[in-house]
Structures are given as C-alpha cells and as structure tokens.
Design a protein around this nucleic acid. Structure first.
Lengths: 340, 340
DNA sequence: CTGAAAGCGCTTACAG
DNA sequence: CTGAAAGCGCTTACAG
C-alpha cells in the first residue's frame, strides 16, 4: 500500500485536484469558504493519497507549537533526578491530559536558576506554556517568569505575593487531618518529618501545630525534623534522629517515601508500626496501599491535580483567565496509624 | 534589562552588524568560512541584544526537529495509564539522557495499533526517532515500522525475527537467578507469577524452568499463574490463586509490584515472608529496598537501560549502525527471600 | 571571505 | 467561491 513515506505535499495535492494550494489548505481546514463539493473531493483525494499535513510547517507559519513544557522542580543537589514517585505520577497524569487535549509534552528538569536563563531554553521558547511541578526555592523567579508573555501554571503552595497561577492541595488541611487522626488514635507525643523551609511542608507544619493545639497537647521542638524529599539524605537524617531514642508515639511525614523510610528504620530498631508508633504519609502514591503495613496517608489526588493544571494552562494559552485552585485533601486511613 | 521578548531576529542582527543574514547565520554557527573578527563582532552583538535563534525556523529549514518520541507500551485495557513505577523510572532515565544529548522528549502513550496508523501521529512525524518502552503484543507492527525511514529502538526481549534494534535485560538469566536463589534458600515448591504470553515473562519462565531442572525439582503447572503487570487484575488473580491454598514455599514474580501485591496477600492470610514463603521481585524499582520486608529482586539496571536506549537511537539517527544490546541482570538479595 | 537568492510547507489578507 | 502572492525565520549552494 503506502510506502510510509509522505510522498504527497500540499502542492501535489493541489495539482491532483486541479486547484490552488490555497484551496487545498482551506479544504483541509474545513473552511466554509470553499465549495462543499470541491472540499469533499479534496478531502477524499487527501485520504486516498495518504496525505498528512506537515505540522512543523503549519506551526512555524502560525507561530504555534502545540507543545507544553513540563519542568520538574527537582532538588538540584540530589543525585537521582526523575525518580520520586510523586513527581512521576504527576507526570503521568499531566501527560495523559495533554494527550487528550492534542498537545505534546516537552519534558525538562533543568533546575531553573533564573527567569532570564530559563527564557532562553527550548522548554520556554518552543512551548506555548509551561507547567512547573513544584516551586522549589525559586518563587521569585517564577513571579518574574509569569510577567513574561508565556503562560505558566505552578504546582505548589499559594504564597501571598504569587503572580502566577498556582494549583495545589490544601496543605494546611492535609497536615491538620493527619495529625488529628494520630491524636484520635490515642497518640500524644508526635514528631513532624518535613522541611519547613519549603512552602508546602511549611503549611503542613502549620496544620500540624493547629491540631496539636486543638488536642491540647504539647509539642517538643526537638521532634521537628527537617527531612528532605530526597531519599538518601532523608534516610541518614532519620537514622540519626531515631538513634537519639526520641520519646514519640507518632510521626507525621511529608511524603509517602519519607513515611516508608521511617517505618523501615523503626522496624530495624525493633519498633512495630502501628503498635509502638503510628506513622502517616503524604501523597497517596500508587503503591501506598500495598506497603506493609499499608500506609495511612493524605491523598493529594494527583490525577485530578495534573488534569486541573493542564486545564488551567490551556485556559491561559487560549486567552481565558485562570484562577488558582486548591484541591481538598482526603485522609486515607490504612494500617500504619491505628494501634490494635 | 531585557523585556524577555526576543525583539531581535537574524535580519535585525544583520542590519546592526552591517552584514548579510548569510553571514550572521554562518557566524552564529561558528562556520570557518567567516572572518574571525567579523564572527566575534557578530557573536558579541548577538549576546548583547539577547538574540536567540528561532529553533523552530531552523529545524523547519533543515527538516529536523531534535525531538525524540517515547512511546510507553501500556496495556490499553488497564485503567491507570502511566503509573507503573518501572515505566516511570525508565522514563526518568530516558528523559535525563535525552536532555544531556540536547534532544527533547515527546511523550506519548497512544497504544500503538498498527504501524500505518502510528506513522500518521505527531509522535512519529515530529520526531527524529522513537523509543518504545515495551513490545506489548505488537511485535509485527514494530517490525513494519522499523522498515520505514524513522529509526526506532525498542525495550524488550530479543525475538528471533526482530527487524528493529532491541535493548533489554537478560530475562532468561534473571528468571534463572531468582529461581536458583530460592532453591539455595531451601525452597522446593515454587510458583511463577507472570504472563508468559508476553515476550519478557516468557524468557523469565524459561530461566525459571531451567533452574528447576538444575535443582532436580518438580514443577506443578498449576503453580504457574499468568499475572498481568496491571495491578488491579493482578491482585484479583493472586487472591483467587491463594484462596486455593497452594502448597508452595516460594514465588518468583515478574515485577516488584507483583511481588509486593503477593506479599500483602500472603500477610493477609497469616503467612509470613520470608519465613513461611520466599518471594522475589523483578526490576529493582527505587523503593524495593525500603519495602517491608525489603525486596529480593532482579535488578534490570533501569538507568543504564534508558541511557543505552538513547545512545543507540542517536546512533541510528546520525546514520551509524546500532546493534542490539542485552544488559546483564543482577540478583539483589534482601529480606523477602531467605528464611531465618 | 561575503552576499543575493532560493526555498523548507504551510496560511491568509487581498483581489477578483 | 478561488487564486496569486507574500511571508513565517532560518540555511546553504552558487556566484563573486
């Protein structure tokens, strides 16, 4: 049948149809300008000859790309780059939504340094908009970037002076819910594992403290541990902390991976979860339900999140306004929190 | 400073430098044709005016894209699309390697149906080459595709009549190693969890049987379970199987996710891993070491795999030959296999 | 060493 | 309803 090679270009189609390129172009775009019969004839001819429009040429001509860039804001210090399950699942969701919308995704995890530098990258120039997954420590640069001509949407925490569209889950609510749940489980001496220098953990810690207050408990600042999301350093830090034999009976963690690491370290010290210590995670990554014990965690509804980010960005690209959006979190109670 | 908008195009740069566009183009490409001083002057001017070459125009002119498409061959029946940790980690590795090589990645998980259809997609037309992660059940279509003008590299199992470049790990070795390890651990009644209708599990099963033979053991065909990679169906199938109270003391699984599911189901039936039953996984996904118990598994060296796939594809794109490559697997012994 | 010219494959304002 | 023409921003064979 076909050679696979697109032998046909628009000019050749025009020759075959005995019309001009203009008419072919219009016919294929289903323009009302062109006569119905002519249109049909051309479309039939195109199908017959297996014509495929050269999108690169079209996009070049129209100065469009139909490409959205996705930037994973991964801590540049960490070695493994794109391997955090949360990022990867978010990526999957974004990819699915973009495909559904007929956009392609350009993936990049160049750690963004400055807005000016980023504007020179292909991720910026070749795309119609950019999705940032995470704010990292470059909130100000994102603000500058948002002032440019290319729309951006950011996954993260609402920060007071945000000039950009932020989508995020309700981190305060998430932190509060996990903490209150542990208190409901009878826990009284809680620890918080997460780095409050980052926007989202900061809000979760806020919620944590509120729940502590609401429960009329005390919180010993020594039990706040600035655990990073990156696994290797997280593990070391948790080990060192547990070696001090802290008097705790519950841990609120800022990611499922942190919770998992904590549980493993606790087990290695002969402490059982949840009977000796309760642990909650954050994110509800795909395998959270299949861990041993299954993880009680705060669901960030990652798939919804990706979809909403894409929707908002397409709104901006097409000139519609886009407001921030905060997704509700839900606490998913599984086996790691309530002692038997 | 800069407005962020690229005010300058090549013509304007030419006007500023009082030379022709031709010369500017050559100067920026560092062509030896152009006078060294002129070149410097133009390059300085370009920097000063924050000129950035319009890559879309350049690529269009050169009929190149600097884009590589990645197609995840995900079972179209499954609901969650891009969420398998193995796929996602492979994706991360590929993305990293492509970025290093100055290529962008176009992600797509349109389940490929036929080569002819695929040739019409953007993933095909807009890219300089395609990476398929997995062969799915479309080996023949991949063969047809490989006959076309666009280079492809496929992650999977070497199949006799492969016309395409295949990168994969040594599945027979992997299956053999995991099985022999369980036998070394004193296990005598083994089960195999994986769908032999797929190329890779088929080879792993091969290795499994060889190890059984080498150990002079018997294998009851009832203990081969065609567990799919998709989690939901996998879980159901494993539940049904375990409900029959099979007389087994070890399970060789075709993925870490399958192993994890098996362990959880075993635990729910009061069976302890590894004391009652030993379990091995496959892939060595990032969190395999942090599961409870930590998973004994076959490392497929995913990061090397992604890097090698990219290398081979770039070879093909640049006209160099590319041979198949089989990565050695390594058995990583952790807590899920050897009874105490 | 440099420039004028052609052309990559399309779309669309303009004229008819 | 249709076509001739211009042009998107580059690169390079050709001529000088």
């Amino acid at each position: 049948m076909s050679t696979g090679k697109s032998v046909v270009d628009m000019q050749q189609l025009a020759d075959l149809a005995q019309v001009s390129r203009s008419t072919v172009s219009r016919a294929l775009a289903d323009s009302p300008l062109v006569n119905a019969k002519t249109k049909q004839r051309i479309q039939a001819l195109a199908a017959e000859h297996n014509y495929v429009l050269n999108e690169a040429a079209r996009n070049f001509r129209l100065k469009k790309t139909r490409i959205v860039s996705v930037v994973l804001m991964i801590d540049p210090d960490s070695e493994q780059r794109t391997s955090d399950p949360f990022f990867l699942e978010m990526l999957g969701s974004i990819a699915d939504s973009l495909v559904d919308a007929g956009y392609d995704m350009l993936l990049s995890h160049t750690a963004i340094q400055t807005a000016a530098e980023f504007r020179k990258t292909r991720a910026y120039r070749q795309s119609e908009g950019i999705l940032f997954v995470g704010q990292g420590k470059v909130h100000d640069e994102l603000n500058m970037l948002a002032a440019g001509e290319r729309p951006i949407v950011v996954w993260g925490a609402e920060i007071d002076d945000s000039q950009y569209c932020v989508i995020g889950s309700d981190n305060r609510q998430g932190g509060f819910g996990a903490t209150r749940h542990l208190i409901d489980c009878g826990r009284r001496s809680l620890a918080f594992f997460g780095d409050r220098r980052l926007p989202e953990p900061r809000l979760r810690f806020d919620g944590f403290l509120r729940a502590i207050d609401a429960g009329a408990l005390n919180f010993d600042a020594a039990n706040e541990l600035a655990v990073p999301f990156e696994h290797q350093r997280a593990e070391t830090m948790i080990q060192n902390y547990l070696d001090t034999n802290p008097a705790i009976d519950g841990i609120v963690c800022c990611s499922d991976v942190i919770a998992l690491t904590a549980i493993t370290q606790l087990n290695q010290r002969g402490l059982r979860v949840p009977d000796d210590i309760s642990v909650t995670g954050y994110d509800n990554i795909g395998i959270a339900s299949r861990l041993n014990p299954p993880l009680t965690t705060v669901d960030q509804h990652i798939r919804d999140a990706g979809r909403i980010m894409v929707e908002r960005l397409l709104d901006l690209i097409e000139g519609r306004p886009a407001s921030n959006h905060t997704l509700d979190t839900s606490l998913v109670e599984r086996g790691s929190s309530r002692p038997s």
